[in-house]
Amino acid sequence: MSDAAITVHNLYRFFGPLQAVNGVSFEIPHGSVCGFVGANGAGKTTTMRILASLDYPTMGHAEICGINVIHHPAEVRKLIGWMPDHFGNYDNMTVLEYLDFYARALGYKGAERRERIDEVMDFTDLVPLADRFSNKLSKGMTQRLCLGRSLLHDPQVLIMDEPAAGLDPKARVELKHLIRVLAKEGKTIFISSHILSELGEMCDSLLFINDGRIVHHGDSESLKKSTDTLGGVLYDVQLDGDPQALSDWAVLQPNIEFLESRKNGGRIRIDTEDPNKAADVLSRMVRENLRVIDFHREQRNLEDAFIDLLANLEKDKQTVPSPPPLPQANPPSAPPEPPLP
């Protein structure tokens, strides 16, 4: 038994030869918001599905609030709210009927059911949409409906797989706000997303997964620091004129690395933190006829950290001749497929 809200230990999930989850271990404390980050196919959804008791691991174990997901799925389901990455809505069913169906399915009866539906509709601002058909909602409204559904039984742990995917900025802000409120209420939230900046703002900690393995677990600051192996300072440079001139110029400069093109210029890394050197670089640019209209220092963001992290891993892979052995000597050679299509 663990005190953590979510405990995953040595979790493996194989689909035939594919090792979707490869020895994942982590703990998420009660009441915290944890972001789950990784490229497509890194193993995020599989891990989350196992935690939601919708899939089973080939090996290892997972617990929600100390209850084993594999041995006691029914108990675990009472504790979790699940938002899948994609889902369909029902034809010929209004928003109110949709929530009423799930409330009935969760065992709520009579006045208690009505009360729960009202609370959830208020919280997710679905009251004005009550009589709208659920399959005619916008993506943002649909996500709110799905969040409402997952909150009907007031779960302690929310598992959200890419909830912000496909949302417009307004809907994203609304969703972020709802997640913040839920976090304040003390719910443990395990959320995956591709939008790292948003996760950085919302989450107490971040879990990075790559090729089925956890490659980082910590807060966003520790990630930024730990992955910054190159040092130096980043600068955003904007030009009046051809932005290509900046990259052409930077290639010829020692101690300057051109990182990425932007609309009117680009992003460079100067390999020292000395501000005098930055001033030198700027004056050199001007001397060499680059019409600089903006030159400012930038913080490393999570995207940089993530890309550096992946690059470091790739480098490590190339230097290490063979992959590390599995912790258990004989994992099943032909693991079965999941029961759901």
């Binding site: 599905r49 919708l54 979790i80 699940w82 994609h86 889902f87 369909g88 799930y102 759901l340």
Partner: peptide
Amino acid sequence: NTIDMMVLT
């Protein structure tokens, strides 16, 4: 993908 949501009830 609504089967998943139903079996969790």
